[in-house]
């Protein structure tokens, strides 16, 4: 365990049959950090998370999680980790209270009653505790799942696409909660598809086809991606957007209300395009610092669903 890394794994590899789903993946997550885990569908995020918390044995690689060896001490890791699965994985035919109580018993928690009561109060579900979990809406299920995996006060939270299919208000509340936990010293590794969530992370790692493409503090990600971005405003912005998309050197056109962010990785090519359009005098072009938004859109656009490779 190096320094204060809660997760520190190197060369993690997993194969299913002859398909390498996770390919020599390294990650070091500092204590108390919110670490964003990004990547398209099928890129190996879930598989990586499962290896980190000891649900899957890696074919190659080694490392520690909470100071325990991921290969040998899976049992110890499980006691200190809260893992929220991608799909709701509590019992739909048990009531909210029964689910929480069951989880508390799996961890053999003391003061079980008080803990479950406290969790229900905090959830705001105390008066619906007898309701079956299956009858809850997506947002409530997600909150129940979070409450359940926090019952044993874990040091590390692994959240696998926790807000997929949840409305924006519930997502915001969820992230408030994540930040509160992080402030208390809980380390969080969260996989996501949403840009507005990626922005909230202290660190970001990006994975495609099981390989890590980028990894670092969020503030440094735009520089790592190396995008040059221009801000464009003026009349008839939609027509311009369509036109720009065909230009060589323009790799990405993102629209934010009435303005366009036009980006590319090759400064020379992009600038020659810009000077041509500037000469028309119809729109105002100003270079801007590339933000995480542009970098994120660029990354996500670069690799579509990684399942595509399976078909090929």
């Amino acid at each position: 365990m190096t320094g204060s890394s809660v997760i520190d794994v190197r060369g993690l590899t997993k194969r299913f049959g002859d398909k390498t789903v996770v390919d020599h993946f390294d990650i070091a997550v500092p204590r108390g950090a919110i670490y964003g885990f990004l990547g398209p569908n099928g890129s190996g995020k879930t598989t990586t998370i499962r290896m980190i918390c000891g649900l899957l044995t890696p074919d190659e690689g080694e490392g520690t999680c909470l100071g325990f060896d991921v290969r040998r001490d899976a049992a110890r890791i499980k006691e200190r980790v809260g893992y929220m699965t991608q799909k709701f994985s509590y019992y739909e035919d048990l009531s909210i209270r029964e689910n929480l109580d069951f989880v508390a018993r799996m961890y053999r928690l003391d003061r079980r009653r008080q803990r479950v009561d406290a969790a229900l109060d905090e959830l705001g579900l105390a008066d619906r505790q007898k309701q079956l979990a299956g009858s809850l809406s997506g947002g409530w299920k997600q909150r129940l799942a979070l409450a359940a995996c926090l019952l044993h006060e874990p040091d590390l939270l692994l959240l696998d696409e926790p807000t997929a299919g949840v409305d924006p208000k519930a997502r915001r509340d969820f992230w408030d909660e994540i930040r509160r936990l992080s402030a208390r010293g809980v380390t969080v590794l969260v996989s996501t598809h949403y840009m507005d969530e990626a922005i909230q992370c202290d660190f970001i790692t990006y994975i495609a086809y099981g390989r890590k493409l980028i990894d670092g503090p969020s503030s440094e990600i735009p520089a790592m991606v190396g995008l040059v971005t221009y801000r464009v405003s003026g009349p008839d912005i939609s027509a311009l957007e369509a036109e720009l998309q065909k230009e060589d050197g323009v790799e990405q056109v993102a629209r934010f209300g009435a303005v366009l962010h036009v980006s590319g990785t090759d400064r020379a090519k992009l600038e020659s395009v810009v000077s041509r359009y500037r000469a028309r005098g119809t729109h105002e072009w100003t270079e801007k610092k590339s933000e995480l938004e542009e970098a994120f859109i660029y990354l996500m656009a670069g690799a579509r669903d990684n399942f595509a490779r399976d078909a090929a």
Partner: peptide, 13 residues
């Protein structure tokens, strides 16, 4: 099939 096994084996059971 319902995915609850994943939650189960993620606990110390």
């Amino acid at each position: 099939e319902r995915g609850t096994m994943e939650m189960l084996i993620a606990t110390p059971v």
